[in-house]
Every structure is written in structure tokens, then in C-alpha cells.
């Protein structure tokens, strides 16, 4: 059931509610030809500038839901709209990834033999952004993330916290509207996890970026603007 809205000619931003970035409506998702039911009738909205926690235990379907939002997978039923586009449609995916969405993963998923700067260039390279603008953005973000002294270090020389900050930097390079973060603190110790969460939260607020962050940790879920609890395939939205 693809979203009819995405076929309109109006600018996608104008189709959703004024401040709505994500609208998920009656989404079902299963694997193994229905044997593993992961999401059952999931619906929720996210507004512009919100930092939302997608909270649930391991295996509750957080990653699956993020994948649907990012166009890495398609729902069995129901509609998903991200920045006014249906991510299940092939031609929207590239546009979403290049213009609207930044991804952060539990494992940093950086290229270990490349430097921090080179890694952050990857989204810019894909979208052929202007060099000067990219360099400037990189300087700005790395200063903000307090890793400016590591800019030209290879990823394999960086600590876990520094790697995750690089991942945040890469996700924000192209000034996305929405960041999808899949357990960004999951591989870090308590102190580093705390720092990375704080940086991500503050940066999101500063840049007016919407964040959907999957986490299984209550301490982070409760500090987001809102959390969406995932349990047995159903959602439960709380403030």
C-alpha cells in the first residue's frame, strides 16, 4: 500500500502536516513469509525538531522500524511517509538518503582505513556537494563534537567515543532534516554513551534536526522529548 501522497507534484514538505516529518500509519512487517511477525499495526507521527526515542528490548523490532523509515526495507502493509516521500519507492530512496536523512548505527560503520575527514566526505561525494561548503561544514561539526584534533586521523586510531562522534558528524554533513540513529550508544561504556547522547541531543536542538533514536536503555529514552515504546510489535507513545 504505497502512499498516494508521494505521487503529487507539490513540494513534498507541503503535503504532510506543517511540522510533520514522519507519519507511520498501520504498518505491519514480518519476516520469513510471516512466520516472524515483528511489527503489528504500528502508527505514530514525529514532528519537526523532535528528538524521539524508539524504546524497546532487544529483538522488539526497533531496527526493523528504522529500516522502514530509511527505505532500507519495505512494510508488508500500511503507509510510511518521511519528509513527504514514501521510502518504499525506489526512486525516493536515493533522494531521501541524499537530502533528508542521516544514519547512525550501533557500530560506527565507518571505513577504518580512511581518516575522519575522508569518512565524512562520503555523503558529500555521493551527492557531489561543493568542496568548500563540505570542508566548512566538517570543521564546524568536528569542533562542535570536540574531535577537531582528530580530523585527519584514521578511524582505527580513534577511541570508541571518537568513532561514534565521527559517525554523528558523517550523518549530519549534508544537513539532513532527519537523523535515524540505531542504538548509537549501544557499543559504548556508560560515560562515553552519556557524552555521545548529550552531544547528539544538543546538536539536534541546535540545528533543528529531527532525531529518531532506537535504544533499549531507559536512561536515554526518558531524556528524549518523547519516547515510543515498542513491545510485542505494538507501539505505545508517551511524552
Amino acid at each position: 500500500m504505497s502512499n498516494v501522497l508521494s505521487f503529487g507534484t507539490a513540494a513534498p514538505e507541503q503535503i504532510l502536516g506543517e511540522k510533520e516529518v514522519i507519519r507511520v500509519d498501520g504498518v505491519w512487517k514480518s519476516f520469513d513469509e510471516g512466520r516472524i511477525q515483528v511489527l503489528s499495526d504500528v502508527s505514530f507521527n514525529v514532528n519537526q525538531g523532535e528528538v524521539i526515542a524508539l524504546w524497546g528490548s532487544s529483538g522488539s523490532g526497533k531496527s526493523t522500524l528504522l529500516h522502514l523509515l530509511g527505505g532500507l526495507d519495505a512494510a508488508d502493509e500500511g503507509s510510511v511517509s518521511v519528509c513527504g516521500l514514501d521510502p518504499a519507492v525506489e526512486k525516493n530512496r536515493l533522494r531521501l538518503r541524499r537530502e533528508y536523512i542521516g544514519f547512525i548505527f550501533q557500530l560506527h560503520n565507518l571505513l577504518p582505513d580512511l581518516t575522519m575527514r575522508e569518512n565524512c566526505w562520503i555523503p558529500a561525494m555521493a551527492s557531489r556537494l561543493a568542496r568548500q561548503e563540505v570542508d566548512q561544514r566538517f570543521e564546524e561539526l568536528t569542533s562542535w563534537l570536540k574531535v577537531e584534533h582528530r580530523r585527519d586521523r584514521r578511524i582505527r586510531e580513534l577511541s570508541g567515543g571518537e568513532r561514534q562522534r565521527t559517525a554523528i558528524c558523517r550523518a549530519l554533513m549534508h544537513r539532513p532534516k532527519l537523523v535515524l540513529a540505531d542504538e548509537p550508544t549501544g557499543s559504548l561504556d556508560e560515560q562515553n554513551g552519556e557524552q555521545v547522547f548529550k552531544l547528539l541531543y544538543e546538536l539536534a536542538k541546535r540545528e533543528q534536526v529531527t532525531v529518531v533514536m532506537a535504544t533499549h536503555e531507559r536512561r536515554f529514552a526518558e531524556r528524549c522529548d518523547r519516547h515510543i515504546l515498542l513491545r510485542d510489535g505494538h507501539v505505545d507513545c508517551r511524552d
Binding site: 532500507l72 562520503i122 555523503p123
Partner: peptide, 9 residues
């Protein structure tokens, strides 16, 4: 997969 997610077609 990562570079695809970063926008590589």
C-alpha cells in the same frame, strides 16, 4: 551497504 546508506546510488 554503508556507502549506499550514505547516498551512493
Amino acid at each position: 551497504a554503508v556507502i549506499q546508506v550514505c547516498g551512493f546510488s
